[in-house]
């Protein structure tokens, strides 16, 4: 056996995979006082132990680095979340809250100025959609803006795709009511977006919408 073979044989012997015939020969050499195989095997065992110990230390060190990175990630994430929350609060304070405060009084003023108000007031309402709008206005007088908004959106959905003039009027009424409800319910950004849309349309309420937009600037 040369040196390379020694190393290979010792590995196989320690792993218990040396073929039986070779194992007998190997053990004979191990017990031979003239052979240096025993001391070489002990040295190889120590080397293997030291290699595994190095592997073990590197693994624990890697685990420590992983935990450190994870901790750092959470720390950065929490800092980012706090910053985001603070930015949102600041935006609320500086932009949204004043806008909502400005819009609120206009909602009560303009919500009762519907195109179909006269027809509604005449009492004889047979159109179910007009009835719904009338009901929405009743909710507003009861200060139930949420329910009024729900009905307005409902009418908008049902009249959106129709092309008759009456239904289009109803759609514009419902859209206008919806905008007023949004203004009243402190949704200023949504309300402003809708007012801009109404102002750009050739509907009944474009001037009034533009009027509100001018005032809240």
């Amino acid at each position: 056996m040369n040196q390379l073979e020694h190393t290979e044989w010792i590995d196989l012997y320690l792993a218990g995979t040396l073929p039986p015939a070779d194992k007998m020969e190997f053990e004979r050499l191990l017990s031979d006082p003239e052979s240096s195989l025993l001391s070489e095997m002990q040295l190889q065992q120590d080397i293997i132990m030291a290699i595994r110990e190095r592997g073990m230390r590197e693994m624990l060190q890697a685990e420590e680095c992983r935990r450190h990175r994870q901790k750092l990630f959470w720390r950065i994430s929490s800092v980012s979340l706090i910053s985001l929350a603070m930015a949102a609060a600041l935006a609320l304070l500086l932009i949204i809250a004043p806008l909502a405060r400005q819009m609120f009084p206009y909602s009560e003023q303009y919500a009762v100025t519907l195109n179909n108000s006269q027809a509604m007031r005449s009492g004889e309402i047979t159109d179910p959609l007009l009835q719904q709008l009338h009901q929405a206005q009743t909710f507003i007088t009861q200060n139930n803006w949420r329910e009024a908004d729900r009905l307005a959106v409902e009418v908008m959905k049902q009249t959106k795709s129709t092309e008759t003039e009456e239904q289009l009027d109803l759609y514009h009424d419902a859209e206008w009511l919806h905008a007023q409800c949004l203004m009243h319910r402190n949704c200023p950004l949504q309300a402003r977006r809708l007012l801009k849309k109404i102002a750009s349309d050739n509907g009944y309420y474009n001037k009034q919408a533009q009027n509100i937009l001018d005032k809240i600037k």
């Binding site: 030291a50 110990e53 592997g55």
Partner: peptide, 18 residues
């Protein structure tokens, strides 16, 4: 001695024995 070991031996022996 094992801790001083570098390439190519370190990755080879670590992959085999560890």
């Amino acid at each position: 001695t094992v801790n001083k070991m570098g390439k190519p031996c370190a990755p080879l022996l670590l992959n085999f024995y560890w």
